[in-house]
Design a protein around this nucleic acid. Structure first.
Length: 807
RNA sequence: GCCGCUGUGGCGGAAUUGGCAGACGCAUACGACUCAAAAUCGUACGGGAAACCAUGUGGGUUCGACUCCCACCAGCGGCACCA
């Protein structure tokens, strides 16, 4: 037994972090002949709070995968950077009277120091920063390409306006009628905004989910958000010699239409102004709904309101019956056509509205009781009161109506999506300037690509203005320019891009982060893309993940990238909660600072604990006690140096457990089951101590498979015991032998009618015949079945026997 | 309302294809070491004296169900007047 010096984790971790900094063993090589592996984690927003214990859960997981891949001979790219534009930094800067650029610089320095203290194997030479002009030059370049391809356009539109941030929000940023960032009230405002046509990619964003390996819940959530529905668009003529277009998923119910509803924002009302005899009441209603907040308008519990429009009516396209028209805010201008055909007999909302306003309820599908409630679930039911549809099933009737509509040119088959175009401008300072010039004569003129980057002007006055204009608009020197086309006086666009712009393509810049000719060299893109494994949070499913898939598809269409999808595999980590099981937050006072843990227990213990804490994909509460178990395990691993024997090779009695552990750890890492991989290594160490010693070869295998989880201690043990000829990173991942994973003796459970009576040790490779022979001469077995009639005998190899008896 | 997920000891969590429920760790108790404590090591640890009972509840399929089916209950996440 040798005496072992104390495990001084601080010295060990400092030593190896310095070596890694100097020698850069984790640098990805642009050697295109080697098999590549691109591991990606969502780059952090460098906030003022510093790193959260949630960050290392994701980073450590892919660090483990990356380190394992390097042992397996892959050229691994595992990069890190900063998603640094955005409101929190700007707000912090305002509060503390600093410049956002300064705040960003400080925060990045702090984050970087914290990340380095965790021993993550990032290739720091490829670090990127979305606020660096050399980076956002290419964000602007992509915007210009979108503009040139008609996918970026400016439009007067109804926008979500955060009253506190004094800024426009995308639909994705509005949560329950409030601002995702600050939870303040969101109101509607008409504003001219830059928009990106993500809707043009709606179908491809759904279809191509088939090409990628994402968790089902992520795919489902994206599909849900895009919200595809199939139906028909139908024209209803009015007595004003015009038409109301409606979208419906139930064209089969067209004979049941007894009224129509148009949204208060629908511009057709203006056209009818002179013909509407109760225009005052209508105007009043429009005024009231415009004042309502998003929250009030979408409150499902409230009773539906509306006003009948007198003097204008529509005609059923088939029966030519007159149909009254209402205006009501339960119809949204932003979905479909802003008008609906109402079928109270077969739609619950219409049913409620019809009852309130005494409108006829005409049943066209038999099977329900439309006096009591709307009959909506009509699968297989039969049409009635519907002329040429009578007697058909609902499914058949849908098809038939669409064919008829198309033949008579009064409608057509139509697919609608809930997804809206992406509102892309923000009235704030700390973002990428939009590289467009407004010229009275030439309209919107894009900046020449050679003039990029369009730098964000340095200023001390960047607070949002009360009138809702971007702070940039007051900077005359910057705003006033000559039109690149005609040379006359013109103005720059003063809105900036949203926080999500820089992150929509960042994974491409890592491939070639200093390139000043293009966003990245084509050869490198072709080699490294797609990302092999991308881990991130569920909260980005309908934001960053969707946006970046959209941009990437566009870049595919213009020949910049070689594949349809950016990420071949996506996984999602669960949140780390506070000790009380609630989400960690300052206000709840349950925040754990990773620095404190690194200080008290070391980075290796923190890494190990974060991986051991529970199912990687599920939320797990932090436990200050639980972390001790991981520390103890590492201490025991360190202690193995004290029982290192002179023998070499793997001892016979250790062969099975070692092969099993290699297998378990290898497979579990691939399946995100880090917790059970660690449990297997704990079992191994228990068995080693039980055996009294460890051989050099056994320790070297153990050290290699532990090293992705706890790299510092592994390097140190490797070096101080000289476990191999070279350094740990020269080693290859150990193979396991499937044959050697099998125990020589197996315990067979003996069951009677499915209940265990006793257990029997036999050789693992025993034949079924031999087993029954043993049992038939086993007094214990005979005693149990004595006097009972054996009906059936079941044998499950290496597991159990079950005897079915009648009493 | 729609979509997705979860429910196992005091706690975090294990359990290949339907085949020995509770691996591994934490906490706890007792013991060893120590003048003592901490650390460390050892033993026990779902309930029950036992037969047995136990994986949210109630049914079902099966020789056998944490696992499959049906109906509930509870909780979490997303969407939501989407026509």
């Amino acid at each position: 037994m040798q005496k072992v010096k104390k495990y001084d984790f601080k010295a060990v971790e400092k030593k190896w972090q310095d070596i890694w900094d100097k020698d850069k063993p984790f640098a990805a090589k642009n050697d295109l002949s080697k098999p590549k592996f691109y591991a990606l984690v969502e780059f952090p927003y460098p906030s003022g709070q510093g790193l959260h214990v949630g960050h290392p859960r994701s980073y450590t997981a892919l660090d483990i995968v990356s380190r394992k891949r390097r042992f397996q001979g892959y050229n691994v790219l595992y990069p890190m950077g900063w998603d640094a534009f955005g409101l929190p930094t700007e707000n912090f800067a305002i509060k503390n009277k600093m410049k956002p650029s300064e705040v960003t610089k400080n925060n990045i320095a702090r984050f970087k120091k914290q990340l380095k203290s965790l021993g993550l194997s990032f290739d720091w030479d490829r670090e990127i920063n979305t606020t660096d002009p050399e980076y956002y030059r290419w964000t602007q370049w992509i915007f210009l390409q979108l503009y040139k391809h008609g996918l970026a356009y400016k439009k007067m539109t109804d926008v979500n306006w955060c009253t506190s941030c004094k800024c426009v929000l995308a639909n994705e940023e509005v949560v329950n009628g409030t601002c995702e960032r600050c939870s303040s009230e969101v109101i509607h405002k008409k504003k001219s905004q830059w928009m990106l046509k993500i809707t043009q990619y709606a179908q491809r964003l759904i279809d191509d989910l088939d090409l990628v390996d994402y968790p089902e819940r992520v795919k489902a959530q994206q599909k849900n958000w895009i919200g595809r529905s199939e139906g028909a668009q139908i024209d209803f003529e009015t007595n004003q010699q015009d038409k109301i277009k409606v979208f419906t998923t139930r064209p089969d119910t067209i004979f049941g239409v007894t009224y129509m509803v148009i949204s208060p924002e629908n511009p057709i009302i203006e056209k009818w102004r002179d013909k509407i005899s109760n225009m005052e009441a209508v105007d009043e209603y429009i005024k009231i709904s415009a004042k309502k907040s998003e929250l009030e308008r979408t409150d499902l519990a409230k009773e539906k309101t509306g006003v009948k429009i007198d003097g204008v009516y529509a005609l059923n396209p088939f029966t030519k019956n007159k149909i009254p028209i209402f205006i009501s805010d339960y119809v949204l201008m932003s979905y479909g056509t802003g008008a609906i055909m109402a079928v109270p007999a077969h739609d619950q909302r219409d049913w409620e509205f019809a009852n309130k306003y005494n409108i006829e309820i005409r049943e066209v599908i038999s099977g329900g009781d439309v006096k009591k409630e709307a009959y909506t679930d009509c699968t297989g039911a039969v049409m009635i009161n519907s002329e040429f549809l009578d007697g058909m099933s609902v499914e058949k009737a849908k098809e038939e109506v669409i064919l008829r509509l198309e033949r008579e040119k009064i409608g057509n088959r139509k697919v609608n999506y809930k997804l809206r175009d992406w509102i892309f401008s923000r009235q704030r300072y700390w973002g990428e300037p939009i590289p467009i010039i407004h010229c009275d004569k030439c309209g919107y003129v894009p900046l020449d690509e050679s003039d990029l980057p369009l730098k964000l002007p340095d200023t001390d006055f960047y607070e949002p203005s009360a009138d809702g204009e971007s702070p940039l608009s007051s900077m005359d020197d910057w705003v006033n320019v000559k039109c690149p086309k005609c040379g006359k006086d013109a103005k720059r666009e003063t809105d900036t891009m949203p926080q999500w712009a820089g992150s929509s393509w960042y994974f491409l810049r890592y491939l070639d982060n200093h390139n000043d000719k293009c966003l990245a060299d084509k050869k490198l893109i072709d080699y490294w893309m797609p990302v092999d494994w991308y881990n991130g949070g569920m909260e980005h499913t309908t934001l960053h993940l969707l946006y970046s898939r959209f941009w990437y598809k566009f870049l595919y269409d213009i020949g910049v990238v070689p594949t349809k999808e950016p990420y071949s595999k996506r996984t999602s980590h669960g949140l780390i909660l506070g000790e009380n099981g609630e989400k960690m937050s300052k206000s709840r006072g349950n925040v754990v600072n990773p620095d404190d843990i690194v200080n008290e227990y070391g980075a290796d213990t923190l890494r190990l604990y974060e991986m051991f804490i529970g199912d990687f994909e599920k939320a797990a509460p932090w436990s200050q006690e639980g972390i001790k178990g991981c520390k103890r395990f590492l201490e025991r691993f360190w202690g193995l140096q004290g029982i290192l024997s002179d023998g070499d090779g793997i001892r016979d009695n250790m062969s099975v457990i070692i092969n099993k552990t290699i297998k378990k750890v290898s497979e579990d890492i691939e399946n995100l089951k880090f917790n059970t991989a660690i449990a297997a290594m704990m079992t191994l160490i228990n068995e080693i101590y039980e055996s009294g010693s460890v051989t050099r070869r056994e320790l070297s295998v153990f050290t290699i498979i532990l090293s992705p989880f706890a790299p510092h201690i592994a390097e140190e043990v490797w070096q101080s015991c000289t476990l191999g000829d070279g350094t740990l990173s020269d080693e290859v991942w150990p193979e396991f032998d499937e044959e050697k994973c099998k125990d020589k003796v197996t315990q067979i459970a003996v069951q009677i009618n499915g209940r265990i009576k006793y257990r029997l040790d036999v050789e693992s490779d025993i034949s079924e015949e031999r087993l029954w022979e043993i049992l038939d001469s086993d007094p214990e077995f005979l005693k149990i079945i004595d006097g009972k009639q054996v009906i059936k005998k079941i044998y499950v190899p290496k597991k159990l026997v079950n005897i079915v008896v009648r009493q």
